[in-house]
Design a protein around this nucleic acid. Structure first.
Lengths: 222, 222
DNA sequence: CTGGATCCCTCACGATACTG
DNA sequence: CAGTATCGTGAGGGATCCAG
């Protein structure tokens, strides 16, 4: 049935046969944080038609990347989760996300931001070397989304939802992106009112160091 | 014109806007070893229509991944090469290639193998830790293709063509894949006649350790 | 011979509606 | 909630043709 192969006997070509179809990798990335139901995946990918979602999940399941599973609650409900093999895509997804973030334009009017997006951004931009001395609990509120990031000496734990004891709360209606690239400095962000911070404000500067998107390399003329 | 976006403000989604289209990543992988002409790229991707190749190259050029360049010879000839930004995909491509190799089925009757494929396989399966004590010059002949791999204490240099001074020459008409997964042991490979070796035969066993495709993880039942 | 452009056909994708 | 059914469109596949 794989009439649409690349015709090469090559690991990369086969990888793309499996996760190279449209939507496949973004679905994998949304599943990185744990099992999700069909409808959750739809919400994460607002533009995906349900039949295509259905087809992708079936293909990924056949390829051993995703596993379909009956959930305890609600009775009869089903969920999708990554297999071990699927989990091995985690680093690749994170690196590809960081690579893409370097050339990402400003958000379009219809672009949506989910908690998964935000958490992927935090995890892919996290620089353990820069966080070796840091211990801090951040809470981020971007629009309606609330996530948190616990940084503990080079180790990051990021998840959805608020935090009981926070060191610093960042709140914004805009995007974190200019902050992560350094296009917007923490001071500028506060002064312009783009970002409101509550808590130990000194930790804001550290935030921008610890979560960072390196610039696109410059081209040397030939 | 980007009517075909993912609708998410997300680094990964944008990365896939850039290199997620069909053929894009395999083209990048073929360009990793240096500039190539239009026709070379066609030979590397036998199934790609010329109009699609043309379109992909233009898109990749617009995205800053590929650069079009006039070559000294032949006069008027053009070549395509990766930009610095494009080169940053190298690790991702190698890891994705290795990931795919774990679940790669046997070659189809029409699957082609090129030098690029082979070199990608060598580079992605190379395990520096396993090669720390090794210094060896391998020459590989797979069908018509000839490549070499110099291993020098954890560092690999792999390129096309034969080698003046070889320690071991491996020759086969089949694929290296079962050798790299361990499905076929070096001894079995020699005894069955699948692979012919010339030179220091002890280095054959080392070869299979140094270039290795780990198995697909086993699934634990829930 | 390289580096494409052009045409046509097909199928995967996208939108919408509908069902167990 | 978790999909299937239907149908239109456009990107991809394949062959051919053309300019430098």
């Amino acid at each position: 049935m794989k009439t649409r192969s690349y015709g090469k006997y090559c690991g990369l070509a086969h990888a793309l046969d499996v996760v190279g179809e449209r939507w496949a990798l973004v679905l994998v990335s949304d599943l990185l944080r744990g099992p999700k139901r069909f409808t959750d995946l739809q919400r994460g990918q607002p533009r995906i038609p349900s039949n295509v979602l259905s087809a992708r999940l079936k293909e990924l399941e056949d390829a051993g990347v995703v596993r379909r599973r009956v959930l305890p609650r609600p009775p009869g409900g089903v969920g999708y989760e990554l297999t071990e093999y699927g989990r091995e895509l985690e680093d690749i997804v994170l690196h590809l996300g960081l690579w893409g973030a370097k050339s990402m334009p400003d958000p379009g009017p219809d672009d949506v931001v989910t908690a998964d997006t935000l958490l992927l951004a935090l995890r892919s931009t996290f620089r353990p070397e820069a966080a070796r001395e840091l211990r801090a609990n951040y809470e981020l509120r971007v629009g309606e989304i609330v996530v948190h990031a616990r940084v503990d000496h080079g180790v990051l734990e990021a998840d959805e939802g608020p935090l009981a004891a926070t060191d610093l709360v960042l709140e914004t209606d805009a995007s974190l992106h200019p902050l992560l690239t350094g296009e917007l400095s923490p001071t500028e962000a506060i002064e312009s009112g783009t970002v409101q911070v509550t808590g130990k404000r000194k930790l804001f500067a550290r935030f921008a160091e610890v979560f960072h998107i390196p610039p696109m390399p410059v081209e040397l003329p030939a």
